[in-house]
Nucleic acid binder design. Structure first.
Lengths: 204, 204
DNA sequence: GCAAGTAGTGAACACTGGTTCATTCCTTGA
DNA sequence: TCAAGGAATGAACCAGTGTTCACTACTTGC
């Protein structure tokens, strides 16, 4: 009555291949976004780049938004981690701030198309929600620096949240938006660093 | 042979009605954008709001982009003019700067949805090109103030273009992006004003 | 080798929303 | 009143894309 024949079980080898395919899809999507942005980055293109059928993408992600949300999440996390590491190195708040801004700027200048895609490019709602989360991550990172500066008396009284949001906006606008159209301009880095340092009152 | 009968000529009355219809279409589009943003603001909705048929919209604009470019242009010009007027009033650079930031901030807080649509909301390429133009208008406005400050010695040495871009980004991020989700927070205005003033070195 | 069941496929589908155009309605000057 | 021609209409069209699904190919345990 109960046929105990269980002919197929997902074996370790198969799981490994599945994981590899999934990784390949995400990598292909990441690559396409970094090179051409979200615009014109269709499922069909991703599938072609990952060498799978379009339908196969849906065996790993429920819909397009989920795929690109993951791409966005992993890419942004890498950037946040890099800047956070630079800011965590010991030193005065002014020095840590400068390192953070410089790290952000240099990385953005090194991958301008990706930076634009992560920070400013129009995306559909699913990815925008992810962006909101990471906007908070950026702001928190700088708000933490400001709070440290307030605690140590290095910075004048200010609302860390507002200052951090404004600082993040300043970096994004000064670096990423211009990069969108026209080439990189490395000379902005020291200017921007000075701007941010002054803006938080760490200029002395 | 040549029938001299030229039965129909566009008369002044007709022209007036045409202009009125066009104005109504733009007004309807503006209203929809200000209330719901570009997303979901279709030609069909605009036509309905303007009480014309969808096809009639195309008797006044070659395509959707042209209509929304005009909406964007007129709306943004109004904002730029208002801030420019505030900045033009006589006074120290620091005072003019504060007035400019406050004017920008108060107007954005008064019409948050519109502000978001004009500054940060994803738009299609035709409108984005228009936004690029006006981004330059904003930056030029503040670059002019920085240049004045440099000339008078009120501000320390800096690249007006970079400082202005960063300042505009700071205002946009601190005000508009948060407004997108969640309510208005008027308390940010003085914080933001202080931030911008410090950032340009006009703090003293 | 075989039955059971999963992974993979890609052409077809569905939906959205901008755009068109044959038709109707008006306006004009005689 | 009437012919001429522009203005207005809105249903139909079309293009681009995300998504599905009937089908094939493969893997597994016996």
């Amino acid at each position: 009555m109960f046929t105990t024949c269980v002919a197929y079980r997902r074996t370790a080898a198969v799981q490994e291949r599945l994981d590899a395919t999934r990784t390949r899809i995400v990598a292909a999507a990441h690559d396409l976004v970094a090179r051409h942005g979200y615009a014109g980055c269709s499922i069909a293109l991703v599938a072609e780049a990952a060498e799978v059928a379009t339908g196969s993408v849906y065996r790993h992600f429920p819909d397009k938004g989920a795929l690109f949300a993951e791409v966005f999440r992993t890419s942004t996390q890498r950037e946040v981690d890099a800047v956070a590491a630079a800011a965590a190195e010991p030193g005065s708040v002014a020095a840590r701030l400068s390192r953070a801004v410089e790290t952000f700027a240099h990385r953005a200048l090194a991958s301008p198309r990706l930076a634009y895609a992560l920070i400013a490019e129009p995306v559909d709602p699913g990815v925008e929600a992810e962006r909101l989360t990471y906007r908070a991550a950026w702001t928190d990172l700088f708000a933490g620096l400001v709070a440290d500066g307030l605690a140590s008396g290095e910075l004048p009284p200010q609302d860390p949240a507002v200052s951090a949001a404004a600082a993040v906006g300043a970096m994004a606008q000064a670096l990423v938006v211009p990069l969108h159209h026209g080439g990189a301009e490395p000379h902005v880095v020291p200017e921007l660093t000075a701007f941010i340092t002054r803006s938080l009152g760490a200029s002395s």
